[in-house]
């Protein structure tokens, strides 16, 4: 009986500690976000640092985004053709691919692959800087690490994610077109007509607004876990994993929240 009580108490304590740690973590991330806004004006003055990050986050992700988007569009065409069967006329295939890509697949898949690549890179770089005292060195030189390191990365991600999403949308629609025309038997005219028929500007905007939020999530998660790195190489590995996992989870959770806000309130008919 005493053993049961002790086990219950230990379980309760462990759960309590876990909850308190999670609350503290949310608090620390919130403070980092506030700090980033506080230092953003001066941080943006170091324009070269922002451009470097835009290059690292955007330009170096181009090939990956290109390949993933091309096959996403291609698979969408195959799946649409299969699901339409005899129920829905194939003339709608273009509009279905377009809307599913620009509202959902383009921004979310881009965020997931860029989150994997860039989130890991940011966490590993800042984590290494933390354990080799480079972050302390910045502070000791009266240079705020949030201004110097976080602002360029977060701004770079927020600017580049929507641009990458536009590229991903275009490539995916093209990938869908290639498959629709070559293996589903839809003519170019039918596909393009379908694209035009159900294209709404608000769909494109909703995807791009999501991409802005996803960019922020990727940048902040990478920076937060990088800054929190402890220990040596093992700590950097842990930080990198946490940054990527938390980015991906938060992208999906915020996608649901944003979808509700955008389609039920902002763009509601």
């Amino acid at each position: 009986m005493a053993d049961d009580d002790s086990l219950t108490l230990r379980t309760y304590e462990a759960a309590r500690t876990r909850v308190l740690d999670s609350i503290a973590e949310v608090g620390r991330i919130t403070l980092l976000v506030i700090d980033t806004f506080r230092h953003s004006l001066r941080g943006l003055r170091a324009f070269r640092l922002v451009v470097d990050q835009m290059h690292m986050i955007g330009v170096q992700s181009l090939m990956l985004v290109f390949i993933v988007s091309l096959f996403t569009g291609a698979v969408s065409a195959v799946q649409a053709a299969y699901q339409f069967s005899t129920v829905v006329p194939l003339k709608y295939i273009g509009s279905v691919i377009l809307r599913s890509v620009i509202i959902e697949l383009g921004p979310v898949l881009t965020a997931l692959i860029v989150g994997g690549r860039v989130g890991a890179a940011i966490a590993a770089e800042l984590g290494t800087m933390r354990v080799t005292e480079q972050v302390d060195a910045l502070e000791s030189m009266a240079i705020n690490p949030v201004r110097y390191l976080v602002v360029p990365r977060v701004v770079g991600a927020i600017v580049m994610l929507p641009l990458l999403t536009i590229l991903a949308n275009t490539i995916a629609v093209f990938g869908g077109y290639v498959v629709a025309v070559t293996s589903v038997g839809v003519s170019t005219h039918t596909y393009v007509t379908g694209l035009k028929q159900f294209f709404f500007m608000k769909d494109l905007w909703s995807g791009l607004i999501k991409a802005v939020f996803f960019g922020g999530i990727i940048g902040w998660m990478g920076c937060y876990y990088g800054f929190r790195t402890e220990g040596g190489a093992e700590g950097v590995g842990v930080a990198t994993t946490r940054a990527v996992v938390s980015s991906c989870v938060l992208v999906l959770v915020s996608d649901y929240v944003l979808a509700n806000v955008l389609f039920r309130f902002i763009f509601a008919e």
């Binding site: 770089e125 290494t128 800087m129 080799t132 005292e133 480079q134 302390d136 060195a137 502070e139 000791s140 030189m141 009266a142 240079i143």
Partner: peptide
């Protein structure tokens, strides 16, 4: 106050992404 100090770290803590010149000129 920090601007009046110089700090030599144990492992030097040079910024890997910068050249030697950029490291020295950063402040």
């Amino acid at each position: 106050v920090r601007k009046r100090f110089g700090f030599l770290f144990q492992g030097a803590a040079l910024f890997d992404s910068m050249t030697v010149g950029e490291n020295i000129g950063i402040t």
